[in-house]
């Protein structure tokens, strides 16, 4: 089922192009930055926007899931990557690899990659809970009309198929079919009729949907596009901040400020190189700041 639920805050009142641009920029920067401070900036900025959108409770579950993966990455990377010169401790000898050494560099590198993963997962959390899938599809419908319609139909029909499976399973059980007992092979065999009924019903339903589309003139001529999304000053502020963020990010990568050398030895952190990170933080947190002001000052709400 659709998890998107519109809430009364500024993040939900942004134009879909703005939100999608924000998501794209954070994704891009998370892939080109390797400096842990820059990656942490992305994490805090996205986190601030998710909290501002009122989805902190959902984000918590994403973070829990991500933290498990991060621990795994650190463990695997530290054990299997033998690069790095600062040995923290030596482990036992294992076949092929020899004596295991855990280095500070390997731990730091995997921790930074872990932050990158958490940023990416958080961005998907924001996309799932704060962006209406129809609006995103609508953005792309000008370019791939049929493909977008197929995706929309699949989104529309999926809950129906889930209901069908549930209902048909009940019907089969009432006809004496044992779906939960017997060998795996037997259980799979007993479930085949459920699949068959659902497929047959879905085929009939798709014919009916096609008929309804035909009756409403689908494919009868060139289509136009319906859109009620409005551009407001807030969108231009956020898009402006995103432009600043991308420019700063590219400059930081170009000047190696956002690039960090982990191996063979961790490079020294130059705090002057972190000025760009501060700009990134401010630019990418702007939606959260705007939301904060939007909720507190009626005048700001009226103006943006």
């Amino acid at each position: 089922m659709l998890v998107y639920r519109e809430k009364d805050n500024l993040i939900y009142k942004l134009h879909p192009v703005t939100v999608m641009s924000y998501i794209a920029v954070v994704l891009l920067l998370s892939l080109i930055f390797s400096h842990p401070v820059y990656l942490l900036v992305l994490f805090f900025a996205v986190g601030a926007v998710i909290i501002a959108s009122g989805n902190a409770d959902k984000w918590k579950y994403y973070l829990l899931m991500a933290s498990g993966i991060v621990v795994m990455i650190i463990l695997v990377n530290s054990v299997f990557v033998q690069n790095g010169s600062t040995v923290l401790f030596y482990g036992p000898a294992i076949p092929v690899m020899g004596k295991i050494k855990v280095t500070l560099e390997a731990v730091c590198f995997s921790a930074a990659m872990g932050i990158r993963l958490v940023v990416i997962i958080s961005v998907f959390c924001l996309y799932t809970y704060a962006v209406h899938p129809d609006k995103v599809l609508k953005l792309f419908s000008r370019f791939g009309k049929k493909a977008v319609l197929v995706v929309t139909l699949a989104t529309r029909l999926f809950p129906l198929m889930v209901q069908d499976v549930r209902r048909v399973t009940e019907v089969q059980r009432c006809r004496g079919v044992k779906l939960d007992t017997g060998s795996l092979r037997q259980r799979l065999k007993n479930r085949l009729p459920v699949v068959k009924v659902v497929l047959l019903s879905s085929l009939e339903r798709s014919m009916q949907i096609a008929e309804s589309m035909h009756a409403r003139g689908y494919g009868s001529g060139p289509r136009s596009f319906y859109s009620r999304d409005l551009w407001r000053p807030r969108d231009f502020f956020v898009l402006g901040a995103l432009v600043v963020s991308v420019m700063t990010g590219l400059a930081a990568v170009f000047h190696d400020w956002a690039v960090f050398t982990y191996y063979p030895r961790l490079e020294n952190m130059n705090f002057k190189e972190l000025n760009a990170a501060l700009i990134e933080m401010l630019a990418l947190s702007l939606p959260a700041f705007l939301n904060w002001g939007w909720k507190r000052w009626q005048l700001l709400k009226l103006k943006i």
């Binding site: 659709l2 209406h132 929309t152 129906l160 949907i209």
Partner: peptide
């Protein structure tokens, strides 16, 4: 159920 195409 069998005539609505979109999700919204």
């Amino acid at each position: 159920e069998s005539q609505l195409v979109m999700t919204c």
